[in-house]
Write a protein that binds this DNA or RNA. Sequence first.
DNA 1: ATGGTCGTTATACGA
Length: 255
Amino acid sequence: MKIATWNVNSLRQRLAHLLDWLKLVEPDVVGLQELKLQDEQFPFAELEAAGYHAVCNGQKSYNGVGIIARHPITDVSRDMGGFDDQQKRVIAATVNGVRVVNAYVVNGQSVASPKFEYKLRWLGAFKDYLTDELGGGAPVAVTGDFNIAPTPEDTHDAGYWAGKILCSDAERAAFRGLLELGLTDSFDKLVAPSGRFTWWDYRMGAFRRNLGLRIDHVLLSQPLAQRCASWHVDTAPRRLERPSDHAPVVAELGT
DNA sequence: ATGGTCGTTATACGA
């Protein structure tokens, strides 16, 4: 079973990339982020033709998340109950007995920004939300653009990124707090041929120079973590013309 | 590496 996450940075711009990638890789479940479209614009027909069920929580211009899967998708939940948020960042659903939670975590802009306060509040709410989902009895897979590089090694230049947005102590502590709920970072099963970065800035030729960060993650609750055999980044879509600035991450689970 | 690019019912702002 392949569980993937991919920030596509506009699904309308990236639909061909996604469809080609699905055909090649055949993931069972994919959490998609930054759809940048409304629900009625979601390409359900194209994905169905590709063999995928789909659910989404869309928003005009910004944010927006979706889950696509080869098995039927049930028990769809949108947003975090109890957290008043105008931004569409969370969708959860059950796929083949697995509770899939897919999130587009707040970027935060800079640690001095009011958006950083929002990011930390949001992460606090997300921890509570995951606590509830983990108590639901089903194994849980959390996919998403977390906008957090968990360790200095998850950056191309630890000195440059020290204390900056995506790498601050507060963000990293929040990420560890999620793991402490009983989730394992599937990155622990990194396979040797894969690099670890999942995002490269569009500017400065950052991808060509491999100036990246690891900010997209697949976290697994215990029964799934035990089955996780490998983690890798697929950089092929990042090499295409007009790519997303993120590459898909794939966690593969055995039986 | 502080510039440089993308995306969006845009022409500023978010990432």
